[in-house]
Amino acid sequence: MPLQFAHDDVATPESARRARQLLKDQQWYADHSQELHDRFAGFFVAVAGEEPFAAATREAAYALAKQHKPDRDPIVFFLPKERKLSIYGLPRSL
């Protein structure tokens, strides 16, 4: 069964808090993405509490961030060595 809408839920204090934190970290990554790429290209970077934690694998980056920020839910981004233009129907690299 493909993904389908299941249900809506009212926000709880916990879910609202988590949503705020994830939004902050998401925006922090967006604002610092070039700098993070310059430092960590080729690595996975977990963002938690507006701080980066880099490692070679997604799991390692997540674990590193949890170790330093146990009360946060880290968002792990992969920073490719080279960001290429992506267009459907064409080869991946132009």
Binding site: M1, P2, L3, Q4, F5, A6, H7, D8, D9, V10, A11, S15, A16, R18, A19, R20, L22, F77, F78, P80
Partner: peptide, 28 residues
């Protein structure tokens, strides 16, 4: 399941999702 959360509430989707097995297929 996928769950979108905001301060107003949450929206959940369930079902089957694909995971690429080749790291070169997609990086995100």
């Amino acid at each position: 399941a996928l769950r979108f959360e905001s301060e107003e509430g949450a929206k959940t989707f369930t079902g089957v999702i694909g995971i690429f097995t080749d790291p070169e297929a997609c990086d995100t």
